[in-house]
Amino acid sequence: MAKRDPNKTARNRMIGTLKEKLRELLPKVLADSGFENEQSLNAKIGSRNDDFFDLQNDVINSQEQFVSKWLEGLKESALNDGVVSDLSLWKKIKAKKSLKEYTILFLKRSYLKHFEELSKNRPPIESAELWIGQQNANYGLLVTPRFKDGKWENDKSEIRAFSNAYWTIGHVMKTGLVIPGKEKIFKFNDIEQYLLFFQDTLVRNSGSNHEYEIAGHYCDYVRASDTPELIPLLIPEFRYAGLATKHVYRLDFLIINPYTLDKVGFELSPWSTHGYLGKLQGLTQKAINEMAADNFAKEIRKHRAYFKQHEVFCLIYTDDDLKNPKKLFKEEILPFLQTEKPQNQLSFQILDEFFED
């Protein structure tokens, strides 16, 4: 049986308390404000959220912030935009103490009911889809995938309501991987099926033994976890140019923190594929140095491009690092997989205990 989240339990208790207070205030509020019933009153207040907030992008960290932004939106609409119905509501709230109290309590309850989706960082629309894999063997990882006009896109209005932590095992288990240009989704029946596909299809196709070994250590880590669905994905072969036919760059591995959305890339760069210079016979030392410098410049351009275009900070590992893949995974990659929710999130448990009668 899943362990209950004490913070969520406390939040639900606070929602119940606010509901009771609203019911106590209701008769006087209806008499003072002229609203016919509870449904019409609540609908009037609650229906304006989409207009007063940018619900796709705003991150709201407290009840007070939610109330403040809502009131600012109402004032702007009433006094500057001249929306008659909002002007009427604004005047009533200003004039009637009971309605003012009811509105604030209602908004606080609304925030608590939608806390998870309102308070979490959400990927911007342009960053909410990732394309991975080799040419003609590539897949898309989206947040809220839908097939429209012959191509995949996110349902933008639903990104904020996505229930799983972004870019985690739980994420891919919910969405699957989409097939570009076709209304097909590669779904996984269980985590083990995904891990097999990850290592023996996505990673093995790269032809890199180093990547394959790192992928194996990642799979072992996920299998040993009590909460594998919360582990960030080790995203293989992240395509710099997405679905563009002309291949530019691919990144060996990418991890995105599900809470901060910070991105870190891992590039395994053995000399044999990233530095070796062939056909040197007859070349001067100057020409050889120029070839080596050109190779180095290409590698640096790649990592600079990933940072500028996708805000991915890349870590590079060379032959000495790759001698011990297990150590590399444990010391360099694992820390980025051990993520926790930021500690600045509200503790509803302590608030509930402090204000308990």
Rank of each mutant, 00 (worst) to 15 (best):
E311I: 05
G265W: 00
R301L: 08
S272A: 15
T9P: 01
I191M: 04
K108V: 03
Y102C: 00
T144S: 10
I15P: 01
K28N: 11
D226K: 15
P232L: 04
P123L: 03
N138V: 01
Y166Q: 05
I316W: 02
L243V: 07
L112A: 03
Y317R: 00
Q199D: 06
D226A: 14
L177K: 00
F106S: 03
K341L: 12
K108Q: 13
N209F: 06
P335Y: 09
P123H: 08
F162P: 03
S33C: 12
K28P: 01
C314I: 08
P258N: 09
E229Q: 13
Q343G: 08
L322S: 09
G278V: 14
K44Q: 11
K96M: 07
A244G: 11
I60D: 00
W271L: 14
F198P: 02
N295R: 09
K92N: 05
D220A: 13
Q135P: 00
R160D: 11
S85H: 10
Y306G: 04
T318W: 07
K187E: 07
W70T: 05
M291I: 14
I288S: 05
V143E: 00
A78G: 13
N57F: 02
E192P: 06
P228I: 04
V248I: 11
Y259I: 04
E267Y: 11
S206N: 08
K148H: 15
N257K: 02
C314D: 09
S163Q: 15
L71W: 05
F186D: 02
S68D: 14
K120A: 07
G140Q: 00
L107H: 00
E299T: 04
Q345T: 08
